[in-house]
Nucleic acid binder design. Structure first.
Lengths: 351, 351
DNA sequence: GTTAATATTGGCAGCGCTGCCAATCAGGAT
DNA sequence: ATCCTGATTGGCAGCGCTGCCAATATTAAC
């Protein structure tokens, strides 16, 4: 963000002079509605939840009182008195990496249709932080907790196994799930990417990636990629790892550095499409012709990669579906299982 | 998403054969901890919340029992018994538009530091849906509700004014807030963009945008932009509006269509950077030289726009700060006010 | 008209935790 | 040893709603 943004002209500035009245907690309760409608509390409860039986006349009177008083049910009390919270907790590594907003998007539509709510918090790829956030989430007695991948602290695993709620591990398949798992194999994605580049005849292949320690799924892709290259007899020529999160800029810088050391690479595999786009822009800016001088391969299948002058070769991952399917399993209270949604290799014009 | 993704090789497929034991709701309660530690319930409560006084010895015994039993406090019960839920509700139009994940990101770090949780739902730019989702959110008695902009249905406004929780309207300043507002003026951003293009000498200016009815903030920018062009005597030459959400692809197609009708435009203003990047890619692909043949101007200041071969001229908006400041105001329970975070014009190489 | 079913309805005990208040305890002053 | 002050502690009444069950109203069947 900018340090000291220019205040927009025409905008109100700083603290407005007009101070609205402070709100007073309006606490219309079920009991008040019942009194106003001249019926019992349980009747109001039944009408509002459309559960059990009541006459049409009663229904109308109750609804009128609800309207009149502006009653808003209190789900905190409702949850405590009954069973499920209908809250689904997401503990995700990041919101900068488009993968996670996509997963949330897929899940939220399903959850909203089923009267559930999504709660989330961001670990910033820190397992300790994840543990603390999972604990905080469990305090809300959610219907389910959704996490990225299988790498968790012992403490997190212990909580997850002890809790009564469902657990869904997302976007990975290379590991053993606590309960449900929805995603695809990152190791396989890495292998498929390597096979593709080899089949197309590339031999001196490099890698530009971001922090593999923290983003373990990127690490698994890298592992599968190197393994395949190695067993084909053409091991990875060199790699350039950016310490922080992935970004277009670090992809660009990473490729620049890598090429400075290894000017004769014929292909580069990137940890994801953001990084790959940065590499692509570097080539455009330097006049490196793609793919004749250098091939570029990414991961994720972002929309933007299909609209660049040369479409990006990449692996398309079912991010939105991952969220959607995970949410569907949870609302259906499906038995423990592992769902492989697969991925798709997109052959663009950069390879 | 892909229709029928190839299952990843090496991944487990479909329903796994191994069925884990179903969970049984482990309900360790405060009372059980108290019994195990040999103290009263209120003592356990005080220790866990680190509130009130208790001896070190008592503290240790309680913590041991908590550890032993794997007790997880129940915030549902806690909230019902005491005051605030420490839940902050976000009702946002979209998760595809990077703006909103950025706002959530800014807010979530502040909220997590202050032991609050973020709940969200997505309206898909539909005011009726927003109303239903706000109602659902209020049922959780959140500390605050955060919404995009000032355009809400009468029903939504009524609920918002009647509720006891704080209301924050984000990313807009052109309207009157219910309670708090944090953002910047979109109309001003449009005006500033137009002034800039005029000052640089552009005269035949076009617009490529997305659905203005639903994205009212984009509509306000467009309004400010046209107004300034008009009063300078160089009214908008033409415009191309894509009916759906903004995307790189629709920016590219939009520019193509616009140029087909108006081949002699000298500059195009886009509804945001995604659209502008699409336009930029179109020019790259068609060999239209930028900015000599055509200038391109965006909105948002995405990182990617700084790394393209020619950095994109745009308006940088404080999206993450908007979320952060909004969260700070809420946790501090600040009085009603309007905060203008401004924006910054970035002069890239596309104008 | 009467009994048996069935449809409606109200009462009330919690759900698990916190806030309030009274009770108990530990030290120090007298 | 006795009293006083402040630190600790436990008991218990709700928070607002739902689930269970008994009570009452309706309608069908005889």
């Amino acid at each position: 963000m900018s340090k000291a943004p220019t205040p927009s002209d025409g905008g109100l500035s700083g603290v407005s002079a007009v101070t609205l009245d402070f709100k007073h907690q309006t606490t219309v309760t079920l009991a008040e509605v019942a009194a106003a409608a001249g019926v019992g509390e349980s009747t109001v409860s039944r009408v509002l939840r459309n559960h059990g039986s009541f006459s049409k006349k009663t229904r109308d009177r109750v609804m009128e009182a609800v309207e009149q008083l502006g009653y808003v049910p209190n789900r905190i009390a409702g949850t405590l008195a009954s069973a499920g919270s209908r809250l689904v907790a997401f503990v995700i590594p990041s919101l900068s990496n488009i993968v996670f907003p996509d997963v949330l998007r897929g899940a939220s539509s399903v959850l909203e249709e089923n009267q559930h709510q999504a709660v989330f918090s961001v670990t910033d790829y820190d397992p300790e932080r994840e543990e603390a956030l999972v604990a905080a989430m469990l305090a809300w007695r959610p219907t389910a907790v959704m996490l990225a991948g299988f790498e968790h602290t012992q403490g997190t695993l212990k909580m997850l196994r002890a809790t009564g709620c469902r657990v869904v591990e997302l976007l990975d398949l290379d590991g053993s799930p606590v309960d449900l798992a929805v995603g695809f194999s990152n190791a396989a994605a890495g292998r498929v990417s390597a096979e593709f580049l080899l089949k197309r005849g590339y031999r001196r292949i490099g890698y530009v990636g971001h922090d593999l320690e923290r983003d373990t799924r990127a690490g698994k892709r890298f592992g599968g990629f190197c393994e395949t290259l190695g067993s084909a007899g053409f091991p990875l020529a060199d790699r350039e790892i950016h310490a922080g999160a992935s970004s277009v800029e670090s992809g660009r810088l990473g490729l620049e550095r890598l090429l400075a050391r290894q000017p004769d690479l014929d292909a580069v595999y990137f940890s994801n499409d953001d990084m790959a786009l940065g590499g692509y822009f570097h080539c455009l800016a330097r006049g490196i012709s793609i793919p004749s001088q250098l091939a570029i391969f990414g991961y994720n299948g972002l929309d933007i990669g299909r609209v660049t002058p040369q479409p990006l070769s990449t692996i398309r991952t079912p991010r939105v579906s991952t969220g959607r399917v995970a949410a569907e399993l949870v609302v259906a209270n499906a038995p423990p299982q592992v769902i492989d949604l697969g991925f798709e290799l997109i052959e663009g014009a950069t390879t």
